[in-house]
Design a protein around this nucleic acid. Structure first.
Lengths: 239, 239
DNA sequence: CGCCTATTTGAACCGGGTCAAGCATTGTGG
DNA sequence: CCACAATGCTTGACCCGGTTCAAATAGGCG
C-alpha cells in the first residue's frame, strides 16, 4: 500500500463525501488536511479483521468490498463500496479492533483519517457527527433487511436480488452491462450461498432470457421483469 | 396503548439511557420533559412497519422485540430489547417510514420522544448525537455479525448461539433459568429457522445435558461447555 | 372440565451444499 | 507466438440437513 502526496479536500470532486459535506469553516478544512492518501492495487486488503482500528477510510477512486471471514475461511461480503463512500468506520462502538476486513475490487485511491483527527473533527463539527449518525442508521437498515433476506429468501431469490442490487448501486456501462464485474464466488459470498448455486441460477436466468452474460459482465434486458421474479413475496425491497 | 402521566427524566433510574446520559443543562432537562409516557400490554404492537415515523421509543420498564415481517408473513426478529434501551430509531436515514415493527414481550412502560423534540435535542446537545452515533455503530456491528451467522451457521449452531445470547443479555433469575422466556416459535424467528427445528435442537441439547428446561424456562448448567459446541469454528463471537 | 394454544414427534420430500470432472479463459515464461 | 500452468467457470451426480405437513400430546386458562 503506497503512500502518496495528500489530495486536499477543497480540490476533491466527491461532493457526496460525508467529510467534505460538513466542511464549512477554514478550521474544518485545516483538520481535513491531516489525512493521508493511499494507493491500493486490485485485490489488496487494506483493513484486516481483528487489527487495531486506524481510523476511517474514504474511497477517493475505485471500488471495494467489506467482508467478514467465518467458518473454515468462508467469506461473507457485507458491503460493496463505491467511489465517494466511507469504510472502516466500525471502530467506534465498544471495540477498538476492526470487526470487518476490506479489500479493493479494482485499483483504488483511499483517503485515511486517523482516529485522533476524526475525534477532533467530530468535537469541532457537530454536523459531521450528525452525518455519520445518519450514515450508520441507513447502514443498519440495510443490514437488517439483509438479515431478513438471508433468513427467508431462496437461493434463486437471493441471487436475483444481488444482481438487481449491484445494477442499482453501480449502474450500467456503455455496453448496457452492470458497471461492476464480480466473480461467481463473490456473488455467492454476497448472496450467502455457494459458487455452484450462483452458476446454476445464472444459467437458468440466461436460458429464461432474464439476463445476458458475456464473461463476468451481466446485463438485465428488462429490469422490471427480473424484479417481478422476487417482488411478489417481498414488499419492502429497501436495500 | 394508554397514555399516562409523564415520568420526568430527572427522577428516572435508568442511568444507561442514552438520553439521560447526555442531559447536563437545565435546558436539556426541559427538552426531555417534552416526551410522552405510554403503557403497553404484553403482545401489543407499538411500532408497525411501513407507518410514518413517530419518533424514538425508550423502554422504561419491560422487554420488547424488534422484527421485520417477510415472505408469507414469516417474522424475522432483529433485536430483543431490554429495559433502558431505545427502539424505533430507524426513522432517521433516508426514509420517514418505519422499516421495522416492535411489540412488547411483557407489559411495558415506554417513553416516546417525538421527531421534533428529538431533532431539537440533537441540535442543542452534540453529546446526544454522538451517543446515538455510537449506538448505531454498535448495532451495525451486531447486525453484520448476524448476517454472517445466518449465512454460515448450521441450525444447531444458530439455536445454541441464540440461547447463549439471550442468557448473556438478559441474565438468569433466582432459579438459574434465563431471565427471558420466549416461545419456540420466537426462538426460531430470531435464529432464522423453523419452530420444529428449534424443538428438535432443544430436545437434543436436553438429552446431551447441555441445557435444562421446564416449560419455556431454559437454563444452562455449564455455559462454557455449551459455548464450546459452536466456538471451535467461530472465533469472533462479537454479538 | 373442555377449549385453545403451544409443544413434540414422525415421516416424507426437496432445496441446496458438496464432490468430482471437464471446459474455458487468462496469464506467463520460454 | 505457442505451450503450459493456473485460475475461473460449468455441469452432473449424490446426499444430507432442514423445511413442510400431519397428527398426537401436553399445558394453560376461563
Amino acid at each position: 500500500m503506497m503512500r502518496r502526496s495528500s489530495i486536499h479536500c477543497s480540490s476533491c470532486e466527491n461532493y457526496e463525501c460525508l467529510i467534505k459535506k460538513s466542511l464549512s469553516t477554514d478550521e474544518a478544512e485545516r483538520l481535513a488536511m491531516q489525512k493521508a492518501t493511499l494507493n491500493c492495487k486490485k485485490g489488496q486488503q487494506f483493513i484486516m479483521e481483528g487489527t487495531p482500528v486506524s481510523g476511517l477510510f474514504f474511497i477517493y477512486k475505485g471500488k471495494a468490498k467489506v467482508l467478514k471471514t467465518g467458518i473454515y475461511g468462508k467469506e461473507q461480503i457485507l458491503r460493496l463500496v463505491q467511489e465517494g463512500e466511507i469504510i472502516g468506520h466500525r471502530g467506534f462502538g465498544t471495540k477498538n479492533k476492526y470487526a470487518i476486513s476490506a479489500s479493493a475490487l479494482e485499483d483504488a485511491i483511499l483517503c485515511n483519517f486517523s482516529n485522533e483527527t476524526l475525534d477532533l473533527m467530530m468535537k469541532k463539527i457537530p454536523e459531521l457527527t450528525y452525518e455519520l449518525m445518519l450514515f450508520y442508521a441507513d447502514e443498519l437498515n440495510r443490514s437488517e433487511t439483509k438479515v431478513k433476506k438471508l433468513a427467508q429468501m431462496t437461493v434463486r431469490e437471493k441471487v436475483i436480488d444481488t444482481i438487481l442490487f449491484i445494477q442499482r448501486k453501480f449502474g450500467i456501462n456503455h455496453k448496457g452491462g452492470i458497471n461492476l464485474q464480480l466473480s461467481r464466488k463473490e456473488i455467492a459470498d454476497y448472496s450467502g450461498t455457494t459458487e455452484e448455486q450462483v452458476i446454476r441460477t445464472i444459467s437458468s436466468l440466461k436460458s429464461e432470457a432474464l439476463i445476458k452474460c458475456s464473461g463476468k459482465m451481466i446485463s438485465i434486458p428488462d429490469t422490471r421483469k427480473l424484479q417481478s421474479e422476487i417482488s411478489e413475496h417481498n414488499f419492502y425491497l429497501d436495500q
